[in-house]
Design a protein around this nucleic acid. Sequence first.
RNA 1: GCCGAUGUAGCUCAGGGGUAGAGCACUUCCAUGGUAAGGAAGGGGUCAAGGGUUCAAAUCCCUUCAUUGGCUCCA
Length: 643
Amino acid sequence: MNTINITLPDGSVRQYEEGSTALDIALSISEGLARNVLSATVNGEIWDAFRPIYQDATLKLNTWNDKEGKSTYWHSSAHLMAEALEALYPGTKFGIGPAIEQGFYYDVDTGSVTLTADDLPKIEAKMLELAKQKSEYIRKEISKADAIAYFNDKGDEYKLELLEGLEDGNITFYSQGNFTDLCRGPHIPDTSSVKAVKLTSLAGAYWRGDETRKQLTRIYGITFPKAKELTEYLEMIEEAKKRDHRKLGAELELFMFSEKVGQGLPMWLPKGTQLRERLQQFLRVEQEKRGYQMVITPHIGSKSLYVTSGHYAKYGEDSFQPIKTPRDGEEFLLKPMNCPHHCEIYGVRPRSYKELPLRIGEFGTVYRYEQSGELHGLSRVRGFTQDDAHIFCTKEQVKGEFQNVLELTTMVIKKMGFENFTAQISLRDPEKPEKYIGSDENWQAAEQGIIDAVSEFDIETVTAYGEAAFYGPKLDFMIKDALGRSWQLGTIQVDYNLPERFELEYTGADNQTHRPVMIHRAPFGSMERFISILIEHTAGKFPLWLTPDQFALLPISDRLIPYCKDILTELAKHDIRGFIDERAESIGRKIRDTELKRVPLMLIVGDKEAENKEVSVRKQGHGDIGSMSVDAFVAFFNKEIEA
RNA sequence: GCCGAUGUAGCUCAGGGGUAGAGCACUUCCAUGGUAAGGAAGGGGUCAAGGGUUCAAAUCCCUUCAUUGGCUCCA
């Protein structure tokens, strides 16, 4: 028997018999480890822990504590669910069933049976029952012909379609219990580690993500090796729901929707408006420092403006339809973008290279007819305000300007306390050139421009093909909401195309005519979406500088109201804003209500404080921090706002 | 837009072919309070909208609208 050298993550090399599995190797280290191994990373590839290794390899054992281990575990759980479905609903056909970030799903076609949420507990019970049988997952390499024969026999057209795209010699089946599936793997050793199951939701999903094809039933679920972990997971979900911006937005009276006004059209209430305007003011100041000039443009524009820009051809049919006027043939569009207006502003007179880069900014409200099923609180709406700006510059200036914007955007995101964001380089889908306008040459220049600019910046990125805008590539800043769903906030886009369509020009130092390049950028993205994420991240406890009411004055008895009014006036002189709770309620009640409203500071005032010209200060979420003079409070406040 | 779920008081929800319910909130009165709910009384509903079945519909059926979980889309 030959031996092979196995290199472990700590760098040590051990020798094993050829054909040993990761499980054998784990067992040679410790029995406990072997029990916990879910899969193995062999030479960088994730393998079944039970798959024999015939060559020298680097090996990492994956357990529940590794991302790879969890992913294998959940993928195997999807197979377990499929086995349960097949047992309960014979004839069920299967699409795809991958692991996801939190759990797994399987797209299934149950034929004439329609699954409802009421069926899920039954499926969960079946899964647990099957898990107890400790069925081993078995890997089998199979020829394409045999695989096709198997699924032909079973009558599963989805698997047959998947097989079409696979190469003979590269096809594997996995079986556990009575269930066999076409699958690349890997899988966990056996089903017994699945101890807790929750099928979380049921939804329609188009086969292969194509809306022209049949809609399958997607069942989402999650499993755990310990019942306690499931309980904790469910509690975490409950906690996250409490942060939902739709719930907090209503409770804190930040914004509202009305059926009468229309779907997806938010209205900002006074407190939400304060919050939003403070954010805008913050950005306005930062942009002025960086040489931006603000403009204001109308909410509608002639249809021909968007025909020129290309937006009409791309989105016209699926948008709010043109507004007609008494004049025959005259049509206007609700503006879906600010850039065409800004292009016109650029073109107001001949431009010199000495004016570039020209940075034109606007808090511009735009309207887009988003599909009704896609609307979501403030995150996806039909009318929203972008913190938009367009930078017109020379080709040579693109990189520097892009980096300036990158600096501004990351500064803004960090100032808001978002540490976990992803910068996504969104490029063309190389397989679908018809989705994009503009010359290949310009696209390449723009894509390379972004990649170069980002590479010199200390920022982690992922690359996503097919996520570009139709006129150019983007750098998108992605951030997650309370429930882990990812949203695009800030965006930076390089555009060679629009200047061409609008025939924008400048005169260079060489006295020749040149075409400028445009950078679209919005650090917040949209005020609506940004604030939705801000609400969820802070659970409504906004930073002191930003929050609508910084303090509440709580008089213990109504005879203290005049004293409270004096304090309110005094604090206003120091730009500290708040209100007096004049209700005929007990102090306990006033404190409770103010805590729930997330007002950061409470100033409690009774006879004792009035006599000593003091206030008793209480911090939201922290409790009483003692009495102090108004001057001392101002100093305390200023220190807090720095922090 | 597609598949599923939901829609009862301002909010959270119970009920269910035969006079519409609770808690909180709101209003008024009493209490003038000491760090997360003081007490009492009162007002409040076309049971999302429209149509159908029925002696009778908030309840059953259909349609529409909105909300919601996904899918597709996202300038």
